[in-house]
Design a protein around this nucleic acid. Sequence first.
DNA 1: ACAGCTTCGGGGACCT
DNA 2: AGGTCCCCTAAGCTGT
Length: 574
Amino acid sequence: MDQAPYVSSPSDKSADAPVRQAGKKPIVTPMMAQFFEIKAVNPGYLLFYRMGDFYELFFEDAEIASGALGIVLTTRGKHLGKEIPMCGVPVHAAQDYLKKLIRLGHRVAICEQLEDPAEAKKRGSKSVVKRDVVRLVTPGTLTEDDLLPAGTNNFLGALSMISHGEFDFALAWADISTGETFVVDLGENRLADELARLNLAELILAPATEQKLGESKILPEGLVRHVAMAAPETFDSEEATASLKSAFPQIEVTGFTRAARSALGALIAYVAETQKTASISLRAPEVQTATGLMQIDLATRTSLEILATNRGEAKGSLRHTIDRTVTTAGARLLARRLSAPLIVPDHINKRLDMVETFVADTIARETLREHLRQTPDLTRPLTRLALERGGPRDLVHVGFAINSARQLAEKLAGMDDLPAGLVELAQVLDAAPGELAVRIKSAIEPSPSVLVRDGGFVREGFDAELDEQRGLATKSRTVISELQAALASQTDIRALKIKHNRVLGFFVEVPATHGKKLLDEPFLNKFIHRQTMANAMRFTTAELGELEGRIVRAQGRALEIEQVIFDRLLGQVL
DNA sequence: ACAGCTTCGGGGACCT
DNA sequence: AGGTCCCCTAAGCTGT
């Protein structure tokens, strides 16, 4: 079994070390005290500690991450007389690094600044900004598209064990990027087969279960990619039942066995712990009865090469060979069905009737395939939106998906001799909330930014004040180009240009040969020197500063309005 | 294409 | 206590 790398942190020893030595200056700086405190409650995670524009890693975390990511290992300050190893990544580029670390099997705790630095200053000049972990990123709890595999589910599982002479097991699993949740009761003999079928990204175990599995060698090496050790209480049937009840108030918990409740409870607790404040959105668990699906033992599964070849490659597997799906959701469904074939004749016939319809009707098949090809994945955008990690593009995809579902329903309904399965499907699809799609379409640009904070995603004409603010920003830009002409003629420098970059904002640039002129009367007071380059000099003026301020304010207000519009639509989606 | 500087936002050391 | 100066990743400029 491949254990996730465990990071033993220096915090274990130092967390409660005295901050001051009697009469001497502090030996642990306030920031390090905060770091150790946060580190101590998240053992086993690399701590991404937010400092301004960077996520910083310290001590062993820094050594591990710098090696794994190929970034520079440096130092920052001292702790107990020794230099503190540090490495860091800029926040805007953190996603790529996070992806690499997760791929390598590391687990990462994201620690953010929870207040404005000005607030901290108010508490005293030596206080540090309040920080805490907002999310734990593990292989089984990903929601970001570029961290997730496209064509397969990313399953997180929890295995419970109940001993009464013999051992009863239950396995609960969920894809938190889609919300699908399942549970099954298992005997010891079927454990390996079931885990092989599901190919979990991460499995949660209580220490006793891990020990038992290790001793009895029930599971072959490498079957479980990453193990997360959970506190035994989360599997405890009372606590588990409580978390189950609060996660799914609508379902009857007594319908599950004790082992199933235990596994589900631990799964829910783990999701809640890793997602912190973000609301979890798992769907009601579906009980997988062993009777409806074919049991395939591990050896058979491996030699059938259903999802992967014996060597573990996708290429050459059954799935890879026959997969003609056109959507990622379709690819995931195909993988699931191939892994667990039906065995009940009625179910098989119902599915075959649906297949037959499309085998016979080439035109309908091609029309629907073409239609599906243009349908975005709905489940993952929805989950991101629910976890407050979604953006305008997710909203648009939800709208597209709704329209697409309704059109699909229409196309199905227009076909003759529809089998029962497809009639049911058409009904489900037709129930999609079309009005919501209309609202999204009327408010949001067809291909908007991914992030809300980038702005510019609300359509022109949707909100009068937004249009007005955008107009102000545009108008100020026109004024700036007029200003350039005016300044060029006033100074008699034809090469005078007004430019913009992220550092200086708007500035006046003149060739070096003319620069000196602006440093003297009569321009001395008007042009404020900012930068001298090899071939040019850069200045700002009060007027330019004011225009820039106007643009910045208008853009800021516009963004606020867009945020409100986004939040309102988000409320209607969820 | 590439070297070298600057940026971001914090914390800390060392002053008064 | 408060002010000033210095420091530090990766990345993105600027200048050659």
